[in-house]
Nucleic acid binder design. Structure first.
Lengths: 264, 264
DNA sequence: TCATTGTTGTTATGCGCCTACTAACAGCCG
DNA sequence: CGGCTGTTAGTAGGCGCATAACAACAATGA
């Protein structure tokens, strides 16, 4: 059934779908049989093996495994027949399973977790949009006197960050937001100072976020796919430092470039 | 650090958490390092290997892999230091990844899917709560003249099923719901007939759902963990048949047991 | 009636990859 | 020298992929 048996041909849409299913926890055979069953509506092992690249003898176990996962139905007859569960039901079955495992895993982590007591002359690296946002929020929580936050793109100033910045401003922290992008600037109001980024430092379109907190906390991020696994949207890498001489030095440098004065 | 090195000791809470992380796509080492980092707050490879059962030499690659996934941060120094991302941020990172893969997988299935044109003298088996519900909904959609639905437990009559039953009733389908459980019965109103289950057939507390549609569609389910993978809540297995003599016979038998008359 | 042919469902086997685990190593510093 | 760090090689076992062989059964034709 495959018009293309070359070992390294361009991956088809089906190949990509199979890979996605594999990352959801299915085996390659299970994924192909599931897809084939949806193609057929109903089918025997033979029919399945004719519309996809799974040997007939392996269809039985793969389909049985799908049935165990609640993703397919079986008819005990000769020949046996299989039919897939509906797409939405299958999606929700997998999602339920994901949520269950997620709870099991993170509940335990929650119980044993310790918060780090700071700290030394450190520069930390963090990869991934969500991870960077997480770090921004934790650093913002320490703010006592002033905060400067910059984001080139709106996606880099998500709702949680906006909220945290507003909370800081409400607590009497002198809060400034800089961005070249108007759509970022207009998300902040009232107690927050908003400013355009000076053209001098805005040249590189790979810059991401900047965060200065008080006099000794700094975070800088850049965007651009680092070709992780396959995190299309997470191409952000940040460095940060807190309560260190290194942080202080970085802050001075950054302030000069931005034309901001942190003293006062 | 392990007080228990017997090969097959009872799994600890941490073991169970590690297994959950593995089902979310992490390796065992990655999971243990992630947990250890949360235990420590911050840590070097040595410290991690002392707190969990991962050889020091393997901590480096495991932590680096966590950093690639956006689940940990790295400090390039000697000794290197690692720190975990916050629990909520980690959970949301994994969930985002899950949703992305889920879309990739099911969008393709949606494009190639065919609906089965019914059908023969078949009895189908379906395992898992969600899969059974899916089948109930598809069978309900065929209703022309009458529907009888029964569920022993409220969980077996989820909102979608209630909605579908009401829709059928509104379409002029004579609709009856039977259940021993008052909490099931009181979910249905107006155009739907509600009845208690006669004691004669209610004996077995493993019965699940029953569905009769017109004169030739029937579904029967039973509950009880079939010890699938680990689907704690999905211990339901159903058989069903539609437009077959087998279905007709089953319907007659069921009606007698329930004291219902389907003619008219 | 018997032999032949084909189908079905099960099972065995070899291969390759990834993970777990151990071990060895060069570089650095006190 | 001795201890620590970070990297790398090497082994073993498990799982998934792939192919083949098999018994049981049904259909066919002489």
């Amino acid at each position: 059934m495959s018009e293309d048996d070359r070992p390294d041909a361009t991956p088809t849409d089906e190949d990509r779908a199979v890979e996605a299913f594999e990352r959801l926890g299915l085996t390659g055979y299970e994924a192909r049989v599931f897809i084939a069953l949806h193609r057929l509506g109903v089918g025997t092992a033979r029919e399945v093996s004719e519309v996809t690249d799974v040997p007939r003898s392996q269809v039985y176990s793969a389909a049985e495994s799908l049935a165990d996962r609640g993703l397919a139905g079986v008819q005990q007859s000769s020949p046996m027949q299989y039919r897939p569960i509906g797409v939405e039901a299958a999606r929700s079955t997998l999602r339920t399973r994901f949520d269950r495992e997620s709870t099991r895993a993170f509940d335990y982590v929650d119980r044993v977790r310790e918060t780090a007591d700071e700290q030394r002359e450190d520069i930390w690296t963090v990869r991934g949009r969500a991870a960077v946002t997480d770090r921004v929020l934790e650093l913002l929580a320490e703010a006592q006197r002033r905060v400067l936050f910059g984001a080139r793109l709106p996606e880099l100033a998500p709702e949680e960050v906006v909220t945290a910045l507003e909370a800081a401003a409400d607590d009497g922290v002198r809060t400034t937001v800089v961005s070249r992008s108007p759509s970022v600037r207009e998300r902040f109001g009232e107690p927050i100072d908003v400013a355009d980024t000076p053209p001098t430092v805005d040249g590189d379109d790979r810059s991401g976020r900047i965060l200065l907190v008080d006099d000794d906390v700094v975070l800088l991020s850049v965007t651009g796919a680092v070709d992780d696994d396959d995190d299309g949207d997470a191409g952000e890498t940040a460095i940060w430092s807190a309560h260190s001489n290194m942080a202080t030095v970085l802050i001075r440098l950054t302030e000069v470039g931005l034309g901001v004065d942190g003293t006062g």
